[in-house]
Simulated assay, not measured.
Amino acid sequence: MDSATSAAAQPPQGLHRARHVRARSGCGCALNLVLFLAVSASFAGAAYRARHRPRDLAFVGTAYYLLALLVCCVAKLELLRDDPAAGDAQRRRARLATWAVSVALSVTFASRVADAMPMLPLKLAVWGITAVFLALGLYLLLCCQDADRRGAEPRREQEDPGSRPAKASRELSPEEMA
């Protein structure tokens, strides 16, 4: 068999990894299905109760849509994290999209909760807490490194001069061999 035929017969690396992850998480798929059905049933009940109030119905529909979109964005982030071929720019766009959807969902809930508050200071407190958490999320998004890079060994320029050089994970010390 020549190399072109064998390369065509094998699935791409990312596709093989995605199949392995899906096969490994069969229980997780069933749990996701049950959770999806529970959220959808809850949405249907809330939509039924709000059927005569257009504002409440719009809130329920928007919250359901944004929640579904957030789940899709997080799933995309997990796929990109496990894919070694994904670039930093692609991961960054996915993180920004996830943050934007979470901002929209947070603002939707904060506006609804603030409307239910009886006094102005409580309304301002709701918006203040929402703003603090959204700013914290943006800070963590922009200033923290990917989880992929946290476990990597430091480069020679970053090592502390007094520390021992980092060993490979499979290399054993003489004490561990005995």
Rank of each mutant, 00 (worst) to 15 (best):
42 S>C: 13
19 R>W: 14
101 V>G: 00
133 F>Y: 06
77 L>Y: 01
139 Y>N: 07
128 G>A: 08
79 L>W: 14
62 T>A: 11
78 E>C: 12
89 A>R: 15
24 R>P: 02
46 A>M: 10
35 L>K: 15
73 C>H: 06
79 L>G: 15
53 R>A: 06
62 T>C: 10
131 A>Y: 03
60 V>A: 03
110 A>K: 00
78 E>V: 09
81 R>E: 07
52 H>D: 09
24 R>L: 15
126 V>T: 04
108 T>G: 01
46 A>G: 04
75 A>D: 12
60 V>D: 00
124 L>V: 04
112 R>M: 07
55 R>F: 07
121 P>G: 08
83 D>F: 03
86 A>T: 05
39 V>H: 08
125 A>W: 06
15 L>K: 14
46 A>R: 06
53 R>H: 12
19 R>M: 13
16 H>K: 15
101 V>L: 04
97 A>W: 03
56 D>P: 00
107 V>D: 01
69 L>V: 10
19 R>I: 13
51 R>N: 08
135 A>C: 11
91 R>C: 01
63 A>Q: 00
19 R>E: 15
71 V>T: 05
106 S>V: 04
70 L>P: 02
73 C>N: 07
140 L>V: 09
91 R>V: 03
130 T>G: 00
139 Y>R: 12
40 S>N: 08
64 Y>Q: 10
49 R>P: 02
86 A>D: 02
25 S>C: 11
113 V>C: 02
104 A>L: 12
108 T>H: 03
109 F>Q: 03
71 V>R: 04
43 F>L: 05
21 V>Y: 11
44 A>I: 10
98 T>F: 03
103 V>N: 03
137 G>M: 02
106 S>Q: 06
34 V>W: 10
22 R>E: 12
116 A>I: 08
27 C>W: 15
83 D>V: 04
88 D>T: 07
98 T>I: 00
74 V>S: 05
50 A>M: 06
90 Q>M: 07
82 D>Y: 08
54 P>E: 01
43 F>P: 01
131 A>E: 06
29 C>G: 12
66 L>F: 05
42 S>N: 10
24 R>G: 12
90 Q>A: 08
90 Q>H: 07
123 K>T: 00
75 A>E: 09
30 A>S: 12
78 E>Y: 14
42 S>W: 14
28 G>W: 06
119 M>P: 01
83 D>Y: 02
101 V>R: 00
52 H>A: 14
29 C>P: 05
92 R>D: 05
133 F>K: 04
114 A>S: 04
